[in-house]
Design a protein around this nucleic acid. Structure first.
Lengths: 243, 243
DNA sequence: CCAAAAGTGTTCGCATTACACCCATGT
DNA sequence: ACATGGGTGTAATGCGAACACTTTTGG
């Protein structure tokens, strides 16, 4: 029998730490939505959102659809993670499945609008129970990819809203990397990258100097995708090279 | 109808440049084996080696098998590249296919032992014709991955034999990156990485000082795979961490 | 002796790091 | 006033790029 093809998605969002019952000094944390399985194998266990690939639907489309169905949201960033298809994957006794897994980042505003359906629950990424199949391993890999990519790319803003302060952006780095980041050096690096432009607006409210609000420069690709990058659209406003 | 699942492999080897009819000063070049298609779609065009995934066979196993069947060789390095499954992939009219693509590196000794079957031919990677399906794009992506990975990993030796001189290793970098590399700095960087150990042997023959032969230190992983790295085998000689 | 590549030493510039310091706001 | 984070300045460090230089072989 030919292996079944499925698409799953590891969905990350930054949410306030609800573990310590709203104590002071709570940093946000990485959360991800999981779905409870209603049949064997792994009946009753938590699993990544996903399902079979529909006809006339691309792999990334399937990931987006799954994401929308389980959370009601659209991601700020979506990337293929890996195709898992070993013959000895856990659960293969009930039918062999090849899973193409994507991972996604959800913005701050969207994150707390998420519809948590009956079978869906958000869990803290660093305190997951035993998941169905090899999904713990998959989440570990997605976390690793998120961390390495935050270090050398400009994707951290995908956890935030349209505008954000450099403190907020730095906090994303700190939470993802799990270590403090020097504010002064972080500011200079981000500014030097040119990936971010000041809006002129400021965010007040703290008992301190208001912080400049920035917006991500959409002219800059957050990640170097190489030849997988989509063909540049021939819009009249696009910057052409040697016309 | 459910999409078919196939596994293809982009196989790279370094071979002497045969284009300039054995002229002097010929640098080696990147070559890859392709298979001619014998039916529609793309009848008569060159395509990547591959085929359907067999039952009870892992994805990487299928890639290895394909590689063995088309070249008679086993790779020094094999890595999953990407899963291509857009609904509008070229050739989808004749049945939708989701391709999990791997890429591989072949050693120097093996490379010229390759059996070139009736339907197989090696072509220079930088002068490919129009291939079947979206295989040009796939090869471009594999080349990009090879280049970026050579820059930050220690995989270049996979194009060479058991032992090699630093000049040979440097030449791999130069061919792959397409630019000259400073011999002095290259030597120091490689030595500092500890990825390579001198054998005590030297290679003579040139009209110059003999070069030290090195061997790759198998205790060092060539690439940081993160959580995808295979579980360390509990061999008695393995280095355990705080038992 | 000479050509050619192996191998060593040294300097320069740049990016990252660490940390001291001033600025602006709410209480 | 002062606590708090926003924002700037600057010296120390490390690393890679560039390149001069010595060494050892084959012819």
């Amino acid at each position: 029998m030919a292996p079944t093809l499925a698409v799953s998605t590891v969905i990350f969002a930054l949410r306030p730490d609800e573990r310590s019952s709203a104590a002071v000094g709570t940093r946000p944390q990485l959360w991800l939505p999981l779905v409870v399985r209603l049949r064997d194998p792994f009946d009753g266990r938590w699993a990544l959102p996903g399902g079979p690939l529909r006809e006339d639907e691309g792999l990334a489309d399937a990931a987006s659809r799954t994401l929308l169905e389980t959370t009601g949201l659209r991601p700020n960033y979506l990337e293929q993670l890996y195709a898992f298809g070993d013959a000895d994957r856990p659960g293969a006794e009930h039918g062999r499945v090849v899973s193409v897994v994507y991972w996604a980042m959800i913005g701050a505003e969207e994150a707390h609008l998420a519809t948590t359906g009956q079978n869906v629950r958000w869990l803290a990424a660093d305190r997951l129970p035993d998941l169905a199949f090899d999904h713990n391993r998959i989440v570990d890999y997605a976390l690793w990819r998120l961390r390495t990519k935050v270090e050398y790319s400009r994707i951290a803003h995908a956890f935030l809203g349209e505008t954000f302060t450099l403190r907020e952006l730095r906090e994303v780095h700190e939470v993802v990397l799990g270590k403090p980041v020097d504010p002064a050096n972080f500011r200079r690096q981000v500014e030097a990258s040119g990936a971010v432009v000041p809006t002129g607006q400021v965010r007040t409210g703290g008992r301190h100097r208001p912080a400049q609000l920035y917006r991500y420069d959409t002219a800059i690709e957050p990640v170097d995708l190489g030849p997988l990058a989509p063909e540049p659209q021939k819009s009249p406003t696009s910057t052409e090279e040697t016309p």
